Amino acid sequence: MSDLAWPPLRDALAGEVPYGAPQLDVPVQLNVNENPYGPSQAAAADIAESVRAAALTLNRYPDRDFTELRGALAAYLNTDGGQGLVPENIWAANGSNEVMLQLLQAFGGPGRTAISFAPTYSMYPEYARDSLTDWVVGRRESDFSLDLEVARAKILAERPSVVLLPSPNNPTGTALPLEAVSMLCEAAGNGVVVIDEAYGEFRRAGTPSALELLPQHRNLVVSRTMSKAFALAGARLGYLAAAPEICDAIRVVRLPYHLSAVTQATALAALRHAPELLGKVDELRVERDACVAWLREQGLTVADSDANFALFGTFEDRSAVWQGLLDRGVLIRETGPPGWLRVSIGTPDEMKAFKQALVAVMEETR
């Protein structure tokens, strides 16, 4: 009998566990930054009718290059920081996770390096691992900002082919100023700089989008998702804006017909209802700012947030606090640097339940 390991998993994957936040059936779920407000009846009806129409064509492959959807996404981004974007500037996939993986498949690989600055999105090193790309991580400052000189020096030393940075950052909520994005693009040379704006629609008034810089930097990629502000986490549609040459390069590695006709129909219908679906974003911004202020009133440290969540701490035993909240029916995320926790912004009732539970847990653990 062979003594080789079974199944014959790659050595780099041995002992690894699948990514995923806990999915627990509790009354208040505030752990994965979902939009707590689902699509309206009008949007849901349009989506349903669009999917019904697409169902009649399911014997045929979908539009492989999803041209209509790319045009609709370009038109939307031109209302939120984009300047003259056209379908050739847009690429989309099944969630921004797949977009990121395709970027690493196209521009990373053996002998190449991807870099980010921690704390950062925990999936990034997995994209690098899965694409056989070397992974290097720098550090952010204590307030989670970037020291531009330190970041420039790190990029010049490592010469990465891909730089991955969320803005607003996950898990901290910190947004990058445009001068930092320009510095990254210039320091990276021929490397691709990906600014992950999954939470971009939640940014505070006066916080610009990196989309504004696309005309100035050919190596800049700005990614977005319909999972958060558009309340379509279950639809799985992420996308990016970049130079046409970058979009064309990704087509080399994408799987054939990777966006189903149903996904395309759903996303197009949602974009027709963009003002309505995004109408709750302002409410969530207000609720976020109120939550940040309240947490600080409790004597906690809270990162400034341009996203739909707040990172707060610090706790001697954050696991005990997380469990205490869960015991009271409130699920948040144990993530970020040691001692910190992250709460997604929910409805007023959900936030009231979170606050009441946190006060009780903090009294218990004092």
Rank of each mutant, 00 (worst) to 15 (best):
P7R: 13
D11Q: 15
L13Q: 07
L13G: 02
Q23G: 11
D25A: 15
D25M: 14
V26T: 14
V28W: 00
N33G: 14
E34Q: 12
N35Q: 13
Y37K: 06
P39V: 10
E49Q: 14
V51H: 05
R52I: 05
R52D: 12
L56I: 14
A72N: 03
A74L: 10
A75M: 11
G82K: 00
L85I: 06
V86N: 13
A92P: 01
N97K: 15
V99G: 07
M100A: 13
L103V: 05
L104E: 05
F107W: 08
G108A: 07
P110R: 13
P119V: 08
S122T: 15
Y127S: 08
R129V: 03
L132Y: 13
D134S: 08
W135P: 06
R139L: 13
R139A: 15
D143A: 09
D143V: 00
S145D: 14
L146H: 13
R152W: 09
R159S: 00
V162I: 14
N169K: 00
P171I: 04
T172F: 02
T172M: 01
T174Q: 12
T174H: 13
L176A: 10
S182G: 13
L184P: 12
V192T: 02
V193P: 01
F202M: 12
A205D: 15
S209T: 10
S209L: 03
E212N: 12
L214M: 00
L214T: 07
Q216N: 12
R218S: 14
M226A: 12
A229H: 06
G234E: 09
Y239N: 04
L240P: 02
A242G: 05
P244L: 09
I246S: 00
C247L: 02
D248P: 01
V252L: 12
R254C: 11
P256N: 06
Y257N: 14
H258P: 04
S260L: 00
T263W: 04
L268I: 03
A269K: 06
L271Y: 07
L271K: 11
R272Y: 03
P275Y: 09
E276I: 11
L278H: 10
G279H: 10
R288Q: 01
E297F: 01
Q298P: 01
D306M: 09
A310K: 01
S319M: 12
A320V: 15
W322T: 03
D327Q: 14
R328Y: 07
V330G: 04
L331G: 00
R342D: 07
R342S: 12
I345P: 02
I345D: 04
G346I: 06
P348I: 06
M351A: 03
F354Q: 04
